[in-house]
């Protein structure tokens, strides 16, 4: 199977326009090539997944899109604008929100404040107006708080607004990360292994939750997953990385059958076993 084959028409959401176009993206750390000239497209309204074994370069790829790392070569074009090498805060302003694989909440702030920080680039209160507490600023703050509560509700965190983030249960912390990312008003939401450390039931719930985000908020989602099973239910399009290279892409079913993917996940022995 050709690795460059586009997704077939069997996935209707994939018919949307190109929202994120990654062109020949490459990252070297010293002599090590973490991501090797990967081309990648996410279409508007789709749930795209990036999977691969541990150390395949998934998070490095994410970090180049979000501006945490500067790519060694290649381009990142989002909604028609070249974002290559832009700092993370500028990328967020353009409409890419993200969560972190290892939870990075603002631990000593409340759940509500965490979400309010997410709105940072959508609010305008500067130092002078903050000091004077002008009516305009108060209105803005009141609206922001209202919106933050709605987002917490959406992520089933109602009633936990005033909790210090680090005191929340693990699953709630994961959902708070999503609420905070949604507060940035993203066009594209990047989720970095959101079900890591969850038990099967929590993973199932989270899968439903991602589907809900797509349906209710018309979001485009790029999901990184380590676990094949998690992505198969929700994804419209799956891309597989191994040792920094794209080894396959297509619909979940196509990818699942791809011998190179099976090999990457289970080793060559498994493939031989399967043939026997």
């Amino acid at each position: 199977m050709s690795t460059a084959a586009p997704a077939p028409a069997s996935t209707p959401a994939a018919a949307g326009e190109e929202l994120l176009v990654v062109d020949g993206l490459r990252k070297e750390f010293g002599g090590l090539v973490a991501v090797d000239s990967v081309d990648f497209v996410v279409r508007r309204g789709a749930i795209a997944s990036l999977i691969g074994p541990n150390g395949a370069g998934k998070t490095t790829f994410f970090n180049m899109i979000t501006g945490v790392y500067k790519p060694t070569a290649g381009r990142v074009v989002f909604a028609g604008e070249d974002l290559t090498g832009k700092p993370p805060h500028a990328v967020t302003q353009r409409g890419i929100g993200r969560t972190f694989q290892n939870i990075r909440l603002f631990q000593h702030m409340t759940a509500l404040e965490n979400v309010l920080v997410g709105m940072h680039s959508r609010l305008h209160g500067g130092i002078i107006r903050s000091i004077l507490r002008t009516p305009g600023l108060r209105r803005e703050e009141a609206r922001a708080e209202q919106r933050a509560r709605e987002l917490l509700d959406l992520c089933t965190l109602a009633g936990e607004e005033d909790w210090i983030a680090r005191n929340l249960p693990y699953g709630d912390q994961r959902r708070l990360e999503v609420a905070r990312a949604l507060a940035t008003e993203p066009k594209l939401l990047l989720l970095d292994e959101p079900t890591a450390g969850m038990n099967p039931q929590e993973s199932d719930e989270f899968r439903d939750f991602i589907g809900l985000l797509k349906r209710d908020l018309a979001l485009t989602v790029l999901l990184i997953e380590h676990d094949m099973k998690v992505v198969m239910g929700v994804s419209d399009h799956v891309t597989v990385l191994d040792f920094g290279e794209k080894i396959a892409e297509g619909s979940p079913k196509e990818v699942q059958r791809d011998p190179r993917v099976i090999e990457a996940y289970l080793g060559t022995g498994a493939l031989a076993e399967g043939r026997r």
Partner: peptide
């Protein structure tokens, strides 16, 4: 006033995680 404003939230966010704060637009 500073601590409880957008500015102060950005300060505290930077303290808790600079990477996360910049990914939130700070």
């Amino acid at each position: 006033a500073i601590v409880n404003s957008r500015l102060g939230r950005a300060f505290r966010a930077l303290r808790d995680s600079e990477v996360a704060a910049s990914s939130m637009g700070v």
